[in-house]
Amino acid sequence: MDAITVKNLTKKFDDLIAVNDISFTVKEGEIFGLLGPNGAGKTTIIKMLATMLKKTSGVARVLDWDVGKNPDEVRRSIGIVFQDPSLDDQLTGKENLDFHARMYGVRKKIRKERIEQVLNLVDLFGKKDILVNNYSGGMRRRLEIARGLMHYPRVLFLDEPTLGLDTQTRRAIWEHIIKLNHEEKITVILTTHYMDEADFLCNRVAIIDEGKILVVESPENLKNMMGEDIISIGVSDGEAFSKKLSSLNWIQGVSHGDGIINLSVKRGEEKIPLLINFAQKENLAVQFVSLHKPTLEDVFIDFTGRNIREENGSTKTLIRDMIRARTRK
């Protein structure tokens, strides 16, 4: 059985088509990422799957339950961390968690245990009896995530779970998500703006832009689709060196910048020693070397034609910028 089946799903808000005829499936046990710039339609997709928003047309199923026809069954199988705030700030952190656990029928004994566990996970144990009203923004976010990870649903939706969190907390949450996925066999659908997050967590990602899915692939395959690694190297006599390079047939492209030579190669990490040996044989001193492998971000820019934080600029100039950025790193 698939955890999620989406066929020709469409959502219109008056004139705006927020989700435009998309189809994808998520297998049980997968961690699936939805990647896209602001306003791409990620949250709208999740809201429809979580029965919070009625679809305009198409099919959306969670564990074979139709979200329109069997919303109760769907709600019984899912958990969700919302992108927008959804805490009661007149309750304490612990009370918010307790409310959640009771709503989801978590038994009394497990309830205490889980509350403690997730509070420790997000490092809020010491603040558990303070009103959420007195929490900082990041603490609220952490509490929301903790709450979402408390009952173990079969399908877990995480809408930008780690937005605005510090690195340590993000790491801890990533590891916990992976643990839930492995040990509890929880299927996870997450949206994110962070490429490293998608890369670290997801078995597959869908890149979404303007309500359309552009591609669904594993992060590895996507990065391979981007082709070569780039080695940037500086040597004492750049001119001489670059001329000699033409004898190396594994180099697929050469370009120059101010004293930097950029080479596109396959499996760059193995080529660096070869290059250094080569330079030494030619009696040239290597000043620096760096390797840039394509990241999910590059893939993303390639597909959406823009940086995740930028909204305009033509595809061409951005791809050029991207290549420049890649070679500069």
Partner: peptide
């Protein structure tokens, strides 16, 4: 108010009638 502050989402998405 619960809708404004978002808590209604937490209530309505829960698997309860």
């Amino acid at each position: 108010w619960d809708r404004q502050f978002g808590f209604l989402k937490e209530i309505l998405v829960a698997p309860v009638s």
